[in-house]
Amino acid sequence: MTNSKLNIQLPGLDLKNPVMPASGCFSFGKEFSKLYDLSKLGAIMIKAATEEARSGNKTPRVAETASGMLNAIGLQNPGVDHIIEHELKYLEQYDVPIIANVAGTKIEDYVSVAKKISAAPNVNALELNISCPNVKEGGIQFGTDPETARKLTYEVKNVSEVPVYVKLSPNVTNIVDMANSVGDIADGLTMINTLVGMRLDKSGKPILANTTGGLSGPAIKPVSLNMIYQIRQHLADIPIIGMGGIATVDDIFDYLSVGVDAVAVGTLNFTDPYICPTLIDDLEKRVESLSLNHIHDLKGRAYS
């Protein structure tokens, strides 16, 4: 059932509501499909696909931190061909837009994965992962150098059959430069990816086998809000899907206030596997109780 007050149109995406699980926190949906109907979701951002299968980093791969967590999974995935044949096939039974996360270590890999996965019948958009902090080569370099990011976005956009959203890394000195460098090519932005961090054990050694990991969860929400706010002062119209520590409807309202069009929920899927449908239900009630005409009535309140 579509609630017209929550319905949002973005390039390639007809969202029933603005809530979707973030990439890497939902795998390819199969496990969650046993808990609730995936068709309820605004969209699904599936786990990153790379050209070849990747076995990821050594364990430990996760460590909890104050109001957050570090992860260094290392883009473990079965490879793009397997994902198209099996994972995306499985998701065909659900009436939900899919945003495929594309990762790689060189431009040719990104291009190849983007070409293949954008041709899958149920992929509606790509999320270009130029910001994974947990792989040794590629990944984050593409997300910290504006020229490289621009070239990569251009190449991927050239081959993609669906709109391309670029996932920005917060591990940069100037986020506006990064957004500007891809803003006229990309169909939208998703932000933010994790912040590089570290946690030590009692003996003073890093807990993660990878030494560092990506920080996510409520701890990073203020960082994300600020970065989105800054970008909105320069790029007023580019679609933005905001993420970073969303746990409640109030968090979603904060993200809308700094100018996002939709939101993604990451870490909190682990805290409460039912968080996405719960937020969607809560959001419906709140929109009614506030007598809003549309959820986007709240958009941009921080600066307008």
Partner: peptide
């Protein structure tokens, strides 16, 4: 025993 994230197969934290 391994450090876990989700506990139900989603996050790939506890692989061996």
């Amino acid at each position: 025993e391994e450090r876990m994230g989700c506990g139900f197969g989603v996050c790939y934290a506890c692989v061996c």
